[in-house]
Design a protein around this nucleic acid. Structure first.
Lengths: 335, 335
DNA sequence: CCACGTTTCTACAACGTTGTAGGCAACGTT
DNA sequence: AACGTTGCCTACAACGTTGTAGAAACGTGG
């Protein structure tokens, strides 16, 4: 049977409130009283009932992180850093999987978790600004560019510049027929749109023509999609000498398809990705990529949430930018 | 401002309890009353306060999944299936990261999450049976073999047989100098010990000598450890013609090290792993592996927890076994 | 038309916690 | 000696919900 403050109080011969004061570190408790209470706590192995505490205080000490899929490495790595950053604020993180489905995302945003959580860090794939409008509820921080003019705080990275830089790197290597993998309909992929913009910027700056045949769409950004898109590019006869994949899993799929086609990377085709997931450091060849500072993204998101919780809930939404760097590895560097 | 039952009750002109009855689907409510209440609920956008509900009911509807690291693909994939399986019981899953550190695992086991969770699914790396002894608290299901004679329900797979089968596969391919990567001190790696046992079983059954020089330890089971262990094997001069890595990330690291050494897989060295993570289906070459049925593992774990919650909490601990199969891919099959 | 069971609804208490208000000593100051 | 201040502690109420007990309204069969 679980012990309550009352049980501890009886054992220590004090009032319930005094035990509560000891548990909460209230200063005005005589040392010997404190000792007696602490002894009773230890003997009964008392631990507070969080539901009751939170009912009373109005805070739960739990925040949620909602991501499309946990087994997408980027999100798993991000989740790890969010858990670590949240721990510094004494928060527990509840992780929600939306599957990237708009309906599920809407449910999460409108607070399926109800009064269980104090705040939400949210990486939406399908949600729109309208879905978010008129949310009275839980403070929220959005990750990524999916919802650009919503009412919530955001953490982003400069996708356009990053995409331009990694594409320019390919151009500096002497590549001229640079394909892109991962374009999506504008209404579904904000990241795709921004990375495509950076790609075309870089081509234009170098005086290269934009060739639509070199841009391959990908319905999702999984390995299988990357492999399929690469195969399409190879069979269509456009003969790329480099590929910019809009994320690393696409790139790993593309590497696989190039391997199956008997092409060498980077000699025949240079490949770059985006995200810097662990796999890309050990793939064959290792993968050049844009490495967003995930630790920083997580930290900023948690800080924004903390400010929102403790500060002004009606202040205008802020967008913070996290740094990134280029990680150049074997898939672009001839040994 | 958040709405309460009381607000809805006033608006609908009924008692608080009637609103509660409507919310909980109690049958004896007149249709027109029900309609009035539901209208009021919709107008006020009422959602129940879970802390209060749980304080009253003694259940929270939240279970925790504790894993060493979320960015280890095996655990990420497992987490995904646990979330899905738990959803069928109406449970939310709170994911905890222990980092595999014994202290943190002990905290989780003894209930850091306190009254917040109804039960715990736990994949311990460092915990011992003693740490678990005398836990009065939360029902728990353990994953894996780390704690073999503890007081809690468990879901396991038959590691010894699986390891024997995948090793036998290497032997059938004609390999004779089969290395193993991933051995650990017995007090830290129960999985390692069982998989090593299966490996030696297979060698013995085929009349091959067990050569200690062919068994490489790995402090952790990450890609970097696999690569380092493989390099050690190659420089030590034992010249293996096959490697059984005790998990897939080790194997991916080993593939990388073999590639760097200029050796071909599978022609020079065949490689197998364990876990069947997504990466192994797209690596170069694709990875042969033991594929535990993760969906089934998750489902069984959730079912065990459900039985424990609804049924007899003092019934003896059960251990269920989940199926697996061999996935044979390029890293053992010459084209 | 009455007795009785069923339906529909309500009042009250309780879940375990903490904020508020206040009481009682002990102390120092006038 | 009277007073205020401080330290230490307690009683009470409230957070929002639901189980229990029971009251009122309704329907049915005699």
């Amino acid at each position: 049977m679980r012990q309550r403050l009352k049980d501890v109080a009886e054992r220590a011969g004090v009032s319930v409130k005094t035990v509560s004061n000891v548990v909460n570190g209230y200063v005005h408790v005589r040392p010997d009283t404190r000792a007696r209470v602490e002894e009773a706590i230890a003997e009964l192995n008392y631990r507070p009932n969080l539901s009751a505490r939170h009912l009373r205080k109005g805070r739960t000490g739990v925040i949620a992180l909602a991501v499309p899929e946990l087994d997408i490495p980027y999100f798993a790595e991000l989740a790890r850093y969010v858990v670590i950053a949240a721990a510094e604020y004494g928060w527990t993180v509840l992780i929600d999987q939306t599957g990237g489905r708009r309906e599920q995302e809407r449910v999460v945003a409108s607070g399926i978790t109800d009064h269980l959580i104090d705040g939400l860090i949210f990486s939406p794939l399908a949600l729109t600004a309208e879905d978010l409008a008129g949310l009275d509820g839980t403070p929220m921080v959005l990750l990524g560019e999916r919802v650009e003019h919503g009412p919530a705080d955001r953490v982003v990275i400069d996708n356009v510049t990053a995409a331009r830089e990694i594409t320019s790197h390919l151009i500096q290597l002497g590549r001229r027929r640079i394909a892109a993998i991962g374009s999506q309909r504008t209404d579904e992929g904000a990241s795709a749109r921004l990375r495509l913009a950076g790609y075309t910027d870089a081509l234009r700056a170098a005086g290269l023509d934009y060739d639509e045949a070199l841009v391959a769409p990908a319905p999702a950004w999984h390995r299988a999609d990357g492999a399929a898109a690469m195969r399409d590019l190879l069979t269509s006869g456009v003969r790329p000498d480099a590929v910019f994949c809009f994320n690393d899993t696409l790139a790993l799929g593309a590497l696989r398809a190039l391997h199956e086609a008997g092409l060498r990377v980077p000699e025949d085709v240079a490949v770059v990705g985006f995200d810097d997931i662990e796999d890309g450091r050990f793939s064959i060849p290792t993968l050049s990529t844009v490495a967003p500072d995930k630790e920083q993204i997580a930290r900023l998101a948690v800080e924004l949430l903390a400010n929102r919780l403790d500060g002004d809930r009606t202040a205008p939404a802020k967008a913070l930018s996290a740094p990134y760097r280029l990680e150049l590895r074997e898939s672009t560097q001839t040994p």
